[in-house]
Amino acid sequence: MQRRADNRAWFAVAPVVVVVAFTAIVPLMTVVNYSVQDIFDVDTRLFIGFDFYRETLRDPRFAQALLRQLAFSALVLAIEIPLGIWIARALVRNQGKSATGFLILLSVPLLVPWNVVGTIWQIYARPDIGLLGAAVTALGIPYNYASNVLSAWVTLLAMDVWHWTSLVALLSFAGLSAISPAYYQAATLDGANAWQTFRHVELPHLKAVLTIAVLLRLMDSLMIYTEPFVLTGGGPGNSTTFLSQYLTTMAVGQFDLGPAAAFSVLYFLMILLLCWLFYTSVMRGGDDG
């Protein structure tokens, strides 16, 4: 006789469902409600259907901010993931010597609040008094993140890499530490070189942690707000105005709640789609690793 599944454990999940409902689902539903109405005040609203969606999708500033956002996320991932893995591999090779100290040092940027990170780099990269800015300027390289687009982007990327590579490194370190030495011995016996060992032994074992690392960094970089707001204020011009800054300008600066809500829904769906595509493409080969 087939045994009936006991689903009582789902009751244990109920508190989380309630918390998520109150902190995420109900607010999201409210945003959807706002997005189809022109809000004049708390009691005066006009239903206008999808007009704000159409307006946002055809807004060139939205398209520009979206392109900047995608470029920023792609660059951040392209730097932080390989760099994090490289640092983790170096730490694993030196385990027992200086690895513990480096792990503690690596954790420090993760403990710094976003606005403080922005302030640190705002001062650090100033071409007149900042250590980095003054050093780069002394080398004869034209550098000013407040007036030069390239400088602003390089500084933002450096700041994000400084802040978040540690997360990738720590996750990768945990993944690499869990690999049995037998795999390395087998690889050595087979005559595998360093790249082959990485590609066929380490990388498959890192799949789960790297999926989490990429997902976290992808979602977080797509939502970046505080650091560029403090460092560059979205400038020079609009060159570092990402989606969240543009959204905040609409919602808080101009108090255009309807358009901002439509923007938010589009923003949410974009992040949801990108994360789902990434997750399913990575997990398609099975859940080994």
């Binding site: 109900v26 539903m29 409210t30 959807v32 409600n33 706002y34 189809v36 109405q37 809000i39 609203r45």
Partner: peptide, 9 residues
């Protein structure tokens, strides 16, 4: 009321 419901949504 604060959720600003409409019929279609």
């Amino acid at each position: 009321g604060w959720m600003a419901w409409t019929g279609p949504t």
